[in-house]
Nucleic acid binder design. Structure first.
Lengths: 169, 169
DNA sequence: CACATATAATTGCAAAGTGCAAGCATTGAG
DNA sequence: CTCAATGCTTGCACTTTGCAATTATATGTG
């Protein structure tokens, strides 16, 4: 007599309830409309948009700063900057003191594009925040800060470190 | 006389404080070690892992159910299932009543693999949750549920709908 | 100064992943 | 029986990504 008692997983991991997947899902669903906007409108890639957002809030930045600020490896940064300069949204100027560091800055038209994308981005964020109470926003903010820190450590440690943790409690 | 008053963005969007980016960042950082584990160990792709997780918690599923459950389009599902069957982690059997729906189920070795990956996944989740208080976990859980719903609506509406919202308050 | 070594960034290319048109198999309506 | 609809798969062009090698610049050493 087959009962539905154990159709399921031995380990208690249910994808739809697994925190990382839930975070990913919200981020992915919300990124999609934004991405189709800036790719259709400006021909911008995801890396391009992230870099644009970074240089929009700085006078000038070199590639590694940018990479650190938006979690992109040097290759992606280099290509993204290439795209932005082709579109006329950024300029590269050789660094003043050390010319290995090229200073990347946003142009006027880059800023215009950024503002248009940012308006959409802010609208999205507003829609999300509208579903939370003031108290929840505060808690989410502080919780996310800690999760960012912990996830960075998890990433840095690699998977072997994770198993060691679990193995030696 | 240049002062640092406005080196920054006109619109108030700071990438590192923008909710969708923050969610993405945690999800991405935490996914990386897991991904290198299952790809090194089993040669599994991200889609493959997601599908494996879905069929681990069901007796059998057809491709569209799987797609819905893990946010994958039909092509990706089909290829993912292909990968899983090649690895011997899943089997396809023609559906009983309607043979257009092939029933996909996990195999014994698929379950073994799943359990190993899930153990890592749970360890990651535990590390994250350890940084939150009991109260915070409860709030995060309920907040995330609402964010999932809202982000799905945002995604479904597309970017034009977003601008209409903002434009006509 | 010439040279080795280090660092920042870029480029070229192969491998992997993605999107989409077309295809096959099956079903159900007329 | 035929034909449109459905569920899924495949082939192929296109894009993205990962990594080795390269360029350009800077710094340390005899």
């Amino acid at each position: 007599m087959k009962q539905t008692a154990t159709p399921a997983s031995d380990d208690g991991l249910k994808l739809s309830a697994w925190l990382p997947y839930r975070l990913f899902l919200v981020a992915a669903q919300v990124a999609r409309p934004l991405e189709s906007f800036y790719s259709e409108t400006f021909g911008l890639s995801q890396a391009g948009w992230r870099i644009l957002a970074v240089i929009a809030e700085r006078d000038a930045a070199n590639a590694s700063e940018i990479g650190r600020a938006c979690a992109l490896d040097p290759f992606a940064v280099s290509r993204g900057i290439g795209q932005l300069t082709e579109l006329g949204f950024a300029v590269r100027r050789p660094g003043k003191t050390d010319r290995r560091f090229a200073a990347v800055s946003i142009t006027r038209s880059g800023r215009t594009a950024f503002n248009r994308i940012a308006a959409l981005g802010s609208a999205i964020e507003a829609r999300l925040l509208a579903r939370l109470s003031e108290a929840e926003r505060t808690i989410l903010d502080s919780a996310l800060t800690r999760l960012e820190g912990e996830s960075a450590r998890i990433d840095a440690g690699g998977w072997r470190a994770l198993l060691d943790d679990a193995g030696a409690p």
